[in-house]
Deep mutational scan, measured.
Amino acid sequence: MEVRTIKVFTTVDNINLHTQVVDMSMTYGQQFGPTYLDGADVTKIKPHNSHEGKTFYVLPNDDTLRVEAFEYYHTTDPSFLGRYMSALNHTKKWKYPQVNGLTSIKWADNNCYLATALLTLQQIELKFNPPALQDAYYRARAGEAANFCALILAYCNKTVGELGDVRETMSYLFQHANLDSCKRVLNVVCKTCGQQQTTLKGVEAVMYMGTLSYEQFKKGVQIPCTCGKQATKYLVQQESPFVMMSAPPAQYELKHGTFTCASEYTGNYQCGHYKHITSKETLYCIDGALLTKSSEYKGPITDVFYKENSYTTTIK
């Protein structure tokens, strides 16, 4: 009895394709271990004539594949690729409408935090270190965002349907971005203890939790000093293409032309909904596939993004 075979390709990165001759009487799992086709788990399936010449994702289970996976995804987590594939199996079914010149995501599976993050990423200057993220990001900007969303979920250790947080998501993504040249110098002034300067680099240099107003941050924000008295913390120097200011959701007025974009969060910790506000020729609110415009805006804002380049204080 002759062994019926077909020729397929296996890959971990969709760049390096490895030619395989597979036995049609055995499952993919018996031949390769966990195997995925377009995100779908085909591990328990036997090869079919229609699979001839198709590319299958496999887990990096030998040295060659491990090197290829690390170079593309910059992670050695053995569960990463499987999590990416199972997320992709959902995100490829989502709709990605162009809204006001940006790629958004039609609401499904509690994905409003991903839509808000995706919209924000198209408006701030950011370059990702893992080629996987950078490639998928370019495709997302062009309207094909399924891979990018699935990668975000995998890097953030999230599953489809789980509630997510924009600030946490951005923080994970910033860790995989090139923020080497970003720098922030802060000064804390206390009447009792004097003053202390701190220099922050990388992710810490672009994120701040405690106030939404970048102007206020430049002037000074009140913080408790270690001595128990009130101290003032203010920005001395900022070198970065953008800054992200966050605070627990509270009524906040966004003035046209003073910011790049913002995240609105309605609801409580267990259950809520994100919308995205962007400042173009007027203010726009993007909620999944829905767009509304207004000249002014007041609502429960939790993150505001500002364009920056270089700032030095005039406070002496």
Rank of each mutant, 00 (worst) to 15 (best):
A146P: 02
V203K: 12
T43D: 10
Q197R: 12
N178S: 10
L88H: 09
S171P: 01
G220L: 04
P249Q: 02
E168W: 03
P224F: 09
F128Y: 08
L212R: 03
M170D: 07
N129T: 10
G210A: 02
V8G: 06
I286R: 02
S279E: 07
A142L: 13
G33D: 03
Q134L: 07
Y137A: 05
H176G: 03
N61M: 12
L254S: 01
M24N: 12
Y234N: 02
S104R: 05
Q270E: 15
P248D: 01
K183E: 06
L153W: 09
L88W: 08
T159Y: 10
L88R: 09
Y269A: 07
K293V: 11
I45A: 12
Y172D: 11
E162A: 05
G194N: 11
A205K: 01
C182Y: 08
A177F: 00
Q31S: 13
M209S: 08
E144T: 05
A136Y: 07
K255S: 04
N110D: 02
P34W: 15
N268S: 12
H18L: 09
Q216G: 02
P60N: 05
A262D: 05
G210L: 05
T282E: 10
K219W: 07
M24K: 09
T64D: 15
T282F: 03
A132N: 01
N187I: 04
L291T: 14
Y57C: 06
T226N: 11
G53F: 10
R66H: 11
Y57P: 03
D303N: 02
Y208K: 04
Y57E: 07
A231R: 06
C156L: 04
L121E: 03
T302S: 07
C190L: 04
L102V: 01
K7L: 12
F242A: 02
G228R: 03
F305L: 04
L121W: 09
H176R: 10
G194L: 03
R83C: 08
T226I: 10
Y96N: 01
H48L: 13
K93L: 11
F9M: 14
K93N: 14
I152A: 08
A250H: 12
E52T: 10
L133T: 02
M24Y: 06
Y84D: 01
Y155N: 03
L153P: 00
Y306P: 03
L102P: 13
G39Y: 09
C182S: 06
T260V: 15
E52M: 11
N14K: 08
S246C: 06
N147P: 11
M244G: 02
Q20S: 12
T19N: 09
I105S: 07
F32Y: 10
P131Y: 08
S295V: 14
P131L: 04
H18M: 08
S246R: 05
T159R: 14
K46N: 13
L200M: 08
E2L: 09
T19Y: 10
P248F: 06
T198W: 12
V12Q: 07
M85R: 05
F9I: 08
D13H: 10
T198M: 13
H48P: 10
Y306E: 02
V8I: 13
T312A: 09
Y28F: 13
E144G: 09
S25Y: 10
H51Y: 05
N14Y: 10
I105Y: 03
G39H: 10
I105F: 01
C227M: 01
I286W: 00
G143M: 05
M26R: 12
P130S: 07
F9A: 15
T292L: 07
D109L: 05
E68K: 10
A150V: 00
F217L: 15
L118Q: 01
E125K: 04
R66W: 07
G82S: 14
E71G: 02
Y137H: 07
L290Y: 12
L254I: 05
A69W: 00
Q270T: 13
T159S: 13
L81S: 09
R141A: 09
F9L: 10
C193W: 04
Y297D: 00
Q237Y: 15
C156Q: 07
T103A: 08
I223Y: 11
G53I: 07
D287W: 01
V206Y: 02
E71N: 14
L59A: 11
I301V: 04
R167C: 01
Q134M: 08
K307I: 06
K95H: 10
T19V: 14
K183N: 06
H256F: 08
Q230M: 15
T10G: 04
E2H: 05
T278M: 14
L283G: 02
G228C: 03
C261N: 00
G101D: 10
G220N: 00
I315M: 15
T120Y: 02
Q195N: 12
G53A: 14
S50E: 15
T10R: 13
F217Y: 04
H74D: 02
Q123I: 07
L200A: 10
A247E: 04
G39I: 07
T198G: 00
